[in-house]
Each structure stands twice: as C-alpha cells, then as structure tokens.
Computed example of a mutant assay.
Amino acid sequence: MALESLDRSPPPFFRVGFAPLTKLFFFSALSVLLMFGDKQLQFTKPIRAGLSTLIMPVQWLVLQPGQVASSVGDYFQNLDQAQKDLQALQLKQLQQSARAQQVEQLLIENQNLRQLLDLKNTVATPSQVAEILFDVPDPYNQRIVIDKGQTKEVVLGSPVIDAGGVIGQVTRVYPLTAEVTLLTDRDQSIPVMNSRTGARNISSGNIMSGTPLIELKFVPASADVKEGDLLTTSGIDGVYPAGLQVARISHIERRVDISFARIHATPLAELKGRHVLVLQPTGIQAASKGKAP
C-alpha cells in the first residue's frame, strides 16, 4: 500500500475544535445574556419552580436525619431538666414538710408548756420544768431521763408529773440529769386513794400484759371498786402531794376462789410532750418548815 493513500487526519478523539479562548468568550457572553434575559423576562422562573418542586422530597429526606438528631437531643435535654426540676421540687417539698412538722411540734410543746405552767400555779408544792432527753433502752424497765439534776436541786424521790397526771418518781440523780422511773415499772409503787370511796391502796406497775398499766394489790374481792373510778395520790408517803391524778380503773377481775380482786388501772399521764414538772418531795418541805425559826 502506498504511503500517500494513508489517511493522515487525526482521529476524532484528538480533533481540536474552537480555540479555548473563543469558547470562554462565547460561554461568558451566553451566561451574561441568559442572566440579563432572566432578569428582565423571568423566563426561568417556571423552570426553577418546577425544579424546586421536584427536589422538595429530596430536600425533606436530607433534612430528616438532622431534625431527628436535634429532636432526640432536645428530648434528652428536656428530660434531664425535668428530672432536675423534679428533684428540686421534691427537696423543697421535704423541706416544707419538715418545717410543717416542726411547727406542729412547736405548737404541741407550747400547749404542753402552757398546761404545765397552769398546773404549776395550781400546785402549792415547789416545782420546776424539765425536758425529757430520752427513754432508757430497757424492755424490762419503764424509765426516762430528764435534763435537770443535782445542780438544779433535784433530789431522790422527787415526783414527776405532766398535765395529765403523775408520771413517776426520780430514782437516780446525776449532776446534770436525773432518771425517772415511771408508774408502770414493775418495781415502782405509789399509795393511791379512790376519789369516789376514799379507800386507800398501794398500786404497782404492771407491764407483763404488754400494755403499760398499774395494778391495785390486796384489794378484797368485796371492795367497793368500779370501772372508771379515779385514783389520786393519798399523800401519806411523804413524797407525793395529796390529790394528784394517777390513773383510772379500767378492768376488774373477781373470782369466787380467790379472796382478792385483780384491779388494773390506766395511767392518766399523757407523756405526749417533751416537758414535765418536777416537784419537791413533801417530806423535804415538812423538814424545811420544821427548821424555820
């Protein structure tokens, strides 16, 4: 084959059209013309509206992950804030509840102190107000500890009462505190008198039944005793002033085969407040009067 017959034109891939500079000027002018035409004639507005409508689902799908993440973040943030607010409200409620309980306790103590002051004015025996510190942790003994002792001239045998009646008797004295044995203690006895009949007896504590009571011992089965009778201090022991309320008869057992009746009484002392009244034993008062010139 002769060389002259060969096609020496470049293949289509390597063919060179317009010069690059020419293309640049052409497309630049076309762009300016289109922008000017769109500015004046608004002929691309329907196209843009159609394209915007077509790509709206795509935009919505693209935005959903971000919105979901933002919603989840807002949810946990609001949840954390709600938990903090709930904890703050619960703490505030507890504080207000504690304050309300303290106010109620103060009102009860105030009422108890007023009753003790009224009782102190009616009782001729020298007395002083004391505060109950705690109960002695002994299941077999009924005792409390008060905040008055030897420094406040509290002596052994001092009667202790509240607005309801006799609580017990001071059995141990320390410099700053004293121990009071309650009437319901099994080792505590007190002479009492039936205010209806005038009969005198000795009462002892009785906690064997589980309920703190006092019991009248060696009372004849035929004795005139009724449920509801009021027992007061007889004043013959030189310790308790006469006429202090002690208890009220609650249960009587009479049996034909036993000479004595079993009589139980419920103490009238309330022991609801924190304050009690400590009296001076009547024997000390009599001795001090006997020494007076």
Rank of each mutant, 00 (worst) to 15 (best):
M1A: 03
S5H: 13
D7Q: 13
A19G: 15
A19L: 11
A19F: 04
A19D: 14
L21S: 14
T22M: 10
S28G: 15
A29Y: 05
L34R: 10
M35K: 00
G37L: 15
Q40Y: 05
G50F: 15
T53A: 11
P57E: 10
Q59W: 10
Q59Y: 08
Q67Y: 13
A69Y: 15
S70F: 12
S70T: 10
S71N: 07
V72I: 14
D74W: 14
F76S: 14
A82H: 11
D85E: 14
Q87F: 03
L94M: 12
V103A: 13
N110I: 00
Q115N: 08
A124V: 06
T125A: 11
S127M: 07
Q128K: 10
A130R: 00
D135R: 12
Y140G: 05
Y140K: 06
R143W: 07
R143H: 03
I144M: 02
G149C: 02
Q150D: 13
P159T: 03
P159E: 12
I161Y: 15
V170I: 09
T171W: 01
T181C: 05
L182Q: 13
D185E: 09
R186M: 05
D187F: 11
I190S: 08
P191G: 11
M193Q: 15
R196C: 05
T197V: 08
G205T: 07
I207K: 02
M208H: 07
M208A: 13
S209H: 05
K217F: 02
V219Q: 03
D224V: 02
L230H: 07
L230I: 12
S234G: 00
S234Q: 04
G235S: 06
A242N: 06
A247W: 02
R248H: 00
H251V: 10
E253I: 15
R254H: 11
R254I: 14
V256C: 01
V256N: 10
H264G: 02
P267N: 15
A269N: 08
R274A: 09
Q285G: 05
A286M: 00
G290E: 12
P293T: 10
